[in-house]
Amino acid sequence: MRSLIIEDDPATARYVCNGLEEAGHMVTRCDNGLDGLHAAINESWDLIILDRLLPGGVDGLSIVARLRELGKGTPVLILSALTSTDERVRGLRLGGDDYISKPFAFAELMARVEALLRRSTPAHGGTRLQVADLTVDLRTFRVARGSTPIILQPRELRLLTYLMRYEGQVVTRTMLLEAVWDCHFDPQTNVIDVQISRLRSKVDKGFSPPLIHTIRGVGYVLGTRGTTVTADNAATANGSADGGETACV
């Protein structure tokens, strides 16, 4: 996994680089916009993480815009200290694939990176999602655990399908808020936790094995134990279950 980090703040850069290296990425870092633009255009990357505001006369957004102009579809994650909605909308409109406000938790960044990398691999088509004995028919929206049908509200169904699409991968609360409720603000309460526990009571209660797992301090993972990374640093180890504290409720 070749990743390019364009970030002028050394502390943030080190934080991101270290984390990605631990997760097995080969990381290259640029500390200004101009070098970053050259590197982004002239080499081939699996992932680019860049800061919105950069020294060197070229800011993060123009790098994204230039990259897209050249027809390169490399996943780009924008980091920014600017939190306003406008900024996020601009960043995404210009071709950024995701946007994180600083300061951020590394786990949040990693979860989004994983989601981006999965998105950039060919989409798994089909009209049916299945994890263990949990199935969702995407045409009829019928949900079942084995042969037992499960009745879900529309929003719960969206939540479940999102979790199933990213099976075995950590998704954060913010990612769920954005994808399922289209909320780009932090409601600051445990609304998502409560939504998840209600979904769990419908999908997992009375069935085995449990599929929805809480990753403490990070988010949630849907999957069977065999296929799921159930560690605090789950996101850092894509597919390599190196153990760790599991906090399934």
Binding site: D9, K102, F104, A105, D232, T236, G243
Partner: peptide
Amino acid sequence: RTPLGRVRAGLDEALRRHQSALPSAS
């Protein structure tokens, strides 16, 4: 926010290091 972010990052990193350094955290 920036220094707070750094403190947070430092703690976060230390936590991750610590956990991966443990032979097994089960």
